[in-house]
Amino acid sequence: MRIVKGLPLVLPKNVDTDQILTAEYMKINPSTQSGREQLGRLAFCGLVQGNGGIIDLETGKSNYSVILAGENFGCGSSREHAPVALGAAGFKVVVSPSFARIFYRNCISTGELLPLEAPELDISEVTKNEDVTIDLEKMELYLSSAQKTLKLNPLGDVAGVVAAGGLFAFARQQGRI
């Protein structure tokens, strides 16, 4: 995956894990196939407007593959159900100026979706209904409507885990397990 292109789901700042997946659904076991599917259907069920326009309830898949969000995405609880729900719904990448720590870590450890930091991302500049392009080699985000190219922060120490596809795969590569 070098280039990711798609219609972005645009969200405000401080979208917390209760909005991504409401606490009551934490009773669903994310490590089973049926649990994963249920969680995918419930992705973003806690948004005040609901997830009707986001998830196709017939297929359980998202109408979007990319999320562009305001700062502090994924704040709140440590529930891994949240990134699993997003991954199961088909989201591939989430870009935000900053992420909540545990959510970020869970995205990387599970390999469910790729969290990318774009410090200069201002979601008010993003026009809905217009594709955005993410170049993972150059680490850039291109917003066609604003005619802007934004820098993405390098992955740093977690690059190895991302390349391996998750924590367990990384640890195996390293010969730790």
């Binding site: 891994e80 990134p83 545990i102 870590r105 450890s109 885990v161 367990f168 730790r176 397990i177």
Partner: peptide, 20 residues
């Protein structure tokens, strides 16, 4: 610190965690 299921499962098996 709080961790997700994957980090917890790894620590449960190995007694280790990768920490910044």
């Amino acid at each position: 610190i709080g961790v997700g299921n994957t980090d917890a499962a790894y620590a449960l098996g190995t007694g280790e965690i990768l920490l910044k």
